[in-house]
Design a protein around this nucleic acid. Sequence first.
DNA 1: GTGGTCTAGACCACG
DNA 2: GTGGTCTAGACCACT
Lengths: 123, 123, 123, 123
Amino acid sequence: MINLEFKGNKPIYEQIIEGIKLNVMRRYLKPGDAIPSVRKLALDLKITPGTVAKAYQELERQGVIETIRGKGTFIAEKPLIKADEERLDAVRQKLKSPIMELKMMGYDKKLLKEFVSSIYDEL
Amino acid sequence: MINLEFKGNKPIYEQIIEGIKLNVMRRYLKPGDAIPSVRKLALDLKITPGTVAKAYQELERQGVIETIRGKGTFIAEKPLIKADEERLDAVRQKLKSPIMELKMMGYDKKLLKEFVSSIYDEL
Amino acid sequence: MINLEFKGNKPIYEQIIEGIKLNVMRRYLKPGDAIPSVRKLALDLKITPGTVAKAYQELERQGVIETIRGKGTFIAEKPLIKADEERLDAVRQKLKSPIMELKMMGYDKKLLKEFVSSIYDEL
Amino acid sequence: MINLEFKGNKPIYEQIIEGIKLNVMRRYLKPGDAIPSVRKLALDLKITPGTVAKAYQELERQGVIETIRGKGTFIAEKPLIKADEERLDAVRQKLKSPIMELKMMGYDKKLLKEFVSSIYDEL
DNA sequence: GTGGTCTAGACCACG
DNA sequence: GTGGTCTAGACCACT
């Protein structure tokens, strides 16, 4: 369900966050669905529970999942993230540097659009 | 010439790298131009020379600048970064996560393209 | 495991790089094997961790080793260096001057080949 | 007569040394021939006289050239370098690291020999 | 003057 | 525990 890449700089817990989000976007996980417990997912992914817990905390903070004490963890009713100004700006910052690299590689606006489109479709 | 953000978690040396690239893209720095010496830029930015040196070394590795022993550092004749497959893949990975966030916010492909276009134009 | 020569003018971090490569070539270190942590190797070699870190980063850039965040550093699955044109040209440049010296000493092609063969076998 | 490469790590004075030696090996400069004065060569190469002086000093130390006070500098009668143990060992050391890189690139002994042969022929 | 290397410490995020 | 980053100094070779 989630593929981890241990080499590379991306923190494991962030990969879990994105993995869950990907499952939501692809409708493999729907609002109300249960997701594995911290312990179970940790076992499946062969990592320590602390790392999974960190990911779940962040997902809950973002409103993607909800934990119900004694019952488990579930996909939120509206797992969409609100596009508020602050969040958009953060995304803008994250996009800035790779787009700059593409520009340095000689990519014009058209090529850039195609490039991001192809990534969008893969999700 | 270069603005540093000490708060964020982006390493200072990376901010220097992007700052120089930005100056190159905006044609404030042209091929053959000298850039500030390691020590001078360190003084200007109020950081240690080692941090600037690290940034310059990475820029040289990428072919953006060239250092001439005992003389200084200069913008390369062709400060373009080679668009080899490996590098493109790295950029792809970097773009993936913010694009995913936009998708989670409900952005469709058209909005995404507009968004990245506006960032591209700012550079 | 690694012998350092502090007198010579060869940077310590380069000696570490070559030392690791030597261990890989001689199969003392195999793909997947862990190599000493930055701190441990620094203690062993009686140098500062920063110097070891610099060596490890360059080795990773060359694809010889891989670091896993929070876990350690390991020999890559395929610790071969890619023989792209750029790298071959760099090696060519490095070989040029010592070969010229041999020629000045009266070495002909046959002797030269024997000489480099004997070095190759030592590795 | 001598081509300098300002970018790249090789010191200018070493490039001069090798340049003179190359001219000797190719018989463009023969024993007894005069070579340019420090000042003239410095002007030609557009560098400072100190750098040329450093190169000439080293060449004289190696017995390749001879300075006659008030008359100028000349190619020695026997500009061959003696192949003593010490010097051979130094060359061996210099060859070691690039040969190791070739081995890491997958070069076998046969390929290595061809590689050095081609360099030898270029000189 | 220049950049390159190294030391001896420190703090941080990650697992 | 791990590696990554940064500081505040120092010494070196080169031009």
